[in-house]
Structures are given as C-alpha cells and as structure tokens.
C-alpha cells in the first residue's frame, strides 16, 4: 500500500500556476474565473443541506415554514440546542454511542493485530485455509446474518446491553487483512535481528511490529470508528429501550416531531454530527488511507 498516494491534497504547485496565469491573456483569465465559478456553485450545492440545517436550527418554527425561507438568521435562537440536548436525551445517546464505538474499535483493532500478526509472521498448519476463511467473512454482508444474530444475542443473554451492541463487530475480516499487509511490509531482517537479540514473538509483536504498523492501525481505527458510530440497523434491532439507544437511533426519535419542534430536530442533527466532524478534521489522513486501502488493494 502506498501511503502517500492515498492522501488527498493532491499536487498543488501554486507558484508555477500563478506564473503561467500572469502570462495568460484575457480569455485565459475568463476561463479561470469560470472554473472557480463552477467549483463554487458545486460547493454551495454540496454544503447546502448542512447549511440550511444549521440555519433552521437557529430559527423559530414559524420562520422555517415562511416564504421565502430565511437563509441568514438575523435573530438566532441558541436555546434549541439545549432543548435538543435535554428533551432529546442527546447527551445520553452520545454517551452510549461513545461506549459502544470504543468497545467495537478496541476489539476490532486488537483482534486484527493478533490475527494479522499470525498470518504475517508465523508458520502453522492450515494457514492458507484459515486465511481464506477469514477473507470469506467479507463476502457475507451483515444484513444476511442479522436474523440469526438477533436470536444468538438473545440466547447469550446480552440482548439490550452494550455487549450485545458490540459483540458481532469485535472482529472484522478487512481489518485482519489490512494489518497482515502492514506486517508483511516489515523487513524480515528486523524479525531476525530481534530473534537474535532475544525477543520472542510476543515481545517482537508489541515492541517492533505494532509501532511500525502504526499508520495502518491508525487508518483502521478511524475507519472502524466511523462505521461503528454510524451503525443503524443493528442498534435498532438489539436494543429494547431508549436507555441504550445510540445517537443514530436517537435521531430516529427526534424525527417526525411536529412543526413546533422542527428547529430542535435540526439542532439535534447538528449535535449528532459534531463528534465526527471533530474526528475527521483531526484524523483526515488516516481516514482517507483506510477508505482507499480497499480500492487500492482491490
């Protein structure tokens, strides 16, 4: 996997571009303006739904219904956010989401590291067959197994618990594959050197292999966080009471409230999005690596 190729901000050589632009005539300048105009129009379209959500979250319900719609709130109402937080139990749902997501991410990263190391560094019978079996899990979408998994979770006595929310996702075939690839990229000489220096497999794993695979582990972490946080079907099925609802399910309850509460619904949506925005701003690179790993690898 080539890490740098996957990182988004592409080759921007602004200075040379500026130089060529100065030399260009008026038609060139017009074309350039056209490009920026097109980009900006598209940017507005992409951002519009989120923008209008933010605006509407700051309006009184009557303003939301009015014609023409308000696009620039002159007297924003911020109390909608505290209303959404308290009446929508969003604080509680966010907490649930964090707990479940952290269990899932922790479990997935751990099982992926362990299994990925075995497949990359150790020699054992049935290695190929087991690896194929691990990859085969990727061909079975979760939706296919959801019927029986619900029964399983009930009979394990973890229905309507954090454990039940997280259990099916504690291992992930793509995660194992990703880390196996990362470990295979570690030069064999390091393994040999460590063996001579007196490090067994277990200590080599944690002191050398894991630190060296950090970029891939980070990518897996962020990607895993994103998918776990956004889960909808499973939390819907496996929880019975609102006490265990995640944010995504919380949004379901905010939706469909009457017109008087529409602004609160919008505020709730924004609250639910903020943690991910923060995560993505901080870990943009890792996320993009994780997302594109599959595409690059095929």
């Amino acid at each position: 996997m080539t890490a740098d190729a996957a990182i988004l901000p592409g080759p921007v050589t602004a200075s040379t571009e500026v130089a060529t632009r100065r030399r260009g005539g008026p038609s060139r300048r017009v074309r350039l303006l056209g490009r920026y105009l097109l980009l900006s129009v598209l940017a507005v379209i992409v951002l519009f739904p989120i923008y209008i959500t933010v605006v509407n979250s700051l309006l009184r319900p009557a303003q939301i219904a009015s014609q023409p719609p308000t696009f620039f709130p002159t007297h924003p109402i911020f109390s909608t956010y505290s209303d959404a937080w308290s009446s929508g139990h969003l604080g509680h749902y966010l907490f649930n989401s964090f707990v479940v997501t952290i269990i899932i991410v922790g479990g997935q990263v751990l099982t992926s590291i362990l299994a990925g190391y075995a497949f990359a560094f150790l020699k054992f019978p049935f290695k190929r067959a087991l690896f194929v079996l691990f990859l085969a899990t990727l061909m079975i979408p979760f939706e296919v197994t959801v019927v029986q998994n619900l029964t399983t979770v009930v009979s394990l006595g973890i229905y309507n618990t954090y454990a039940g929310l997280a259990a099916p996702f504690l291992a992930w075939g793509l995660g194992v594959f990703l880390l196996r690839q990362a470990f295979l990229g570690i030069p064999r000489d390091l393994d040999d050197a460590a063996a001579l220096d007196g490090y067994g497999n277990w200590r080599f794993l944690w002191r050398v292999a894991v630190p060296l695979a950090r970029p891939s582990i980070a990518a897996l972490t962020v990607f895993s966080f994103l998918t776990a946080w956004n889960q909808y079907l499973w939390p819907l099925l496996v929880t019975k009471d609102e006490h265990l609802s995640t944010v995504q399910i919380g949004l379901r309850q905010l939706r469909g409230t009457s017109l008087e509460n529409v602004n609160i619904t919008f505020a709730g949506v924004i609250i639910a999005v903020v943690p991910l925005v923060v995560l993505l701003v901080v870990f943009q690179k890792q996320l993009i690596r994780g997302l594109t790993a599959g595409a690059v690898k095929g």
């Binding site: 030069p187 000489d189 040999d192 050197a193 001579l196 490090y199 050398v208 630190p211 060296l212 950090r214």
Partner: peptide, 20 residues
C-alpha cells in the same frame, strides 16, 4: 538451541535497525 540462546550477534546487509 534457539537463536537468542546462542550468544552470537549479527550485522545484516540492510542493517536491520528499528526505524521507530
């Protein structure tokens, strides 16, 4: 005997330094 119990040191062509 295992490698670690042989009390020999090895210098590799790639040097095998731990990059981190």
């Amino acid at each position: 005997a295992e490698a670690k119990d042989r009390d020999v040191a090895m210098v590799f062509q790639s040097y095998a330094l731990y990059p981190h």
